[in-house]
Design a protein around this nucleic acid. Structure first.
Lengths: 258, 258
DNA sequence: CGCGTAATTGACTTTTGTCAAGGCCGGTGG
DNA sequence: CCACCGGCCTTGACAAAAGTCAATTACGCG
């Protein structure tokens, strides 16, 4: 079931059959199902394990005292939700399901065993964690410096490319199971403005969005007008220098503390 | 010279004398000086080591094709700049000095030696890295959901509290060696608007800002009107359960990959 | 003292938000 | 099969927040 995670990690480095089986194994132990709009974990809770999204979409979010909500990141299949495992006493944000979600709960010990036995996986999980941080930085840029239209365009480019990296696109189309309110909460725009921006993008032929189906006829153009530079996703097999050797024996710190 | 780093790490857990000496040691090997506005490392460069700020302020930033710049985070003494060491082929952003800066360059191997010998330090460095990520998330919220005034107020609260955590405040005052343009680049506001917001905050007695000296007469009030919740900085000795024991021998993954 | 950077101010424009009403559409129950 | 319901999308009119431009002032530093 964790095809997407494996596929994503292989954007960074090549994994052996044993590596893949080990990932498959930890991801198949303990599952959980949630309905749309349910919280996977809430601000203030203690996070006990890492959640791997197997199916569906989720998001990290925070709600302010004045009631406004910011979506901090989106999670799609193959994403790991909270690597803070056991360092922080409690979550400083919530994670909620957008669609119905199926996830695997991976304990800290399972992860430690996995990484001790599979240094290549360790490297790949490090890469995954650092890409997550890079995405967060890019969101800061998005919210701070781009216009409404650029923000939405940028977000759609990012989501499309991330989905493509895990095999969840179909040509130039993908599912986009989020409401316009969600898009607004992620981009810092009102739902009304999101609506208008989407119409503009549609009118210019830059997107086709009908129901939950998104089509980007010309990704390059959308990227250009959205000031989207794909570098921050680091999808270009940066760990490929490891491909030649057998199991990597270089010292590799473990991406799970304690 | 790395008093601030040590002091900061002790916000999380208690360190032994040997832990502190080991940190002192790696931070004293190789230093570097930069003038204000010089780049410590630039987008596209290969990052070879972790930079520890010993003195001065720096910032992470990105420049878009249209010339606009977003400051993604501020670094003050005691902060570690780029833990991406050697996973990514190249930096996806730049780090620049705001004031003249003195920093320590810590190689990956030094860090690995340090963490292998000092599990408590490993834990603390994990905590530091996760706090950095939490700060980045909070910036996303700041840019997405707060008004100009709240954004500036929030940023000032954060900086003041971070400085206080490393002993760089003096009562209710601290140095704020950034221009209004910098504040704008960090909060997504124009310099003109930053100026007006600062005047409002001054007029309401919420800050005193003269030259590079910032005073916050009533931090609690400023926090309240800025929707600032300190939790995300995780300064409350969350690792204090480790205090009692001697050197911690629990498995601790290393916060430096490869 | 003079230069250059940074801060300030005013007038005006643009972007985005708010409010409120109406339309679409899929699902459900009679 | 159809009417109704609720969530989501769409639209218009207006308001508020923030940006831009341009000129002026303050201030630190050599």
């Amino acid at each position: 079931m964790p095809q997407q995670l494996i596929r994503k990690l292989e954007q960074f480095t090549r994994l052996s059959g044993a590596d893949r089986r080990a990932i498959w194994d930890v991801a198949s132990r303990k599952g959980r199902f949630l309905g749309a709009h349910q919280d996977i974990i809430r601000e203030g809770d203690k996070s006990e394990h890492v959640n791997l999204i197997l199916d569906g979409w989720a998001c990290r979010y925070k709600t302010l005292e004045n009631g406004r909500r910011q979506i901090i990141s989106f999670f799609v299949p193959g994403d790991l939700c909270d690597p803070h495992v056991c360092v922080f006493r409690e979550m400083d944000h919530s994670i909620g399901a957008i669609t119905p979600v199926r996830l695997a709960e991976i304990s800290r010990d399972q992860l430690l065993d996995l990484t001790e036995a599979h240094p290549r996986v360790t490297q790949a999980l490090w890469w995954e964690m650092l890409v997550t941080a890079a995405v967060q930085r890019e969101w800061t840029v998005n919210l701070g410096q781009r216009t409404g239209r650029e923000r939405i365009g940028h977000l759609l480019c990012e989501l499309f490319i991330r989905l493509r990296a895990v095999g969840l696109t179909d040509g130039d189309s993908c599912l986009l199971p989020v409401t316009q309110v969600d898009l607004g909460d992620a981009t810092g725009l009102s739902n009304v403005h999101v609506n208008r921006v989407l119409q503009e993008l549609r009118a210019d032929g830059q997107i086709v969005l009908k129901g939950r189906q998104l089509t980007i006829p010309d990704l390059e153009t959308l990227q250009a007008v959205s000031l989207f530079n794909v570098n921050y996703l680091h999808l270009d097999r940066e760990g490929r220098h490891l491909d030649a050797n057998g199991p990597d024996t270089a010292r590799a710190g473990c991406p799970v503390p304690q």
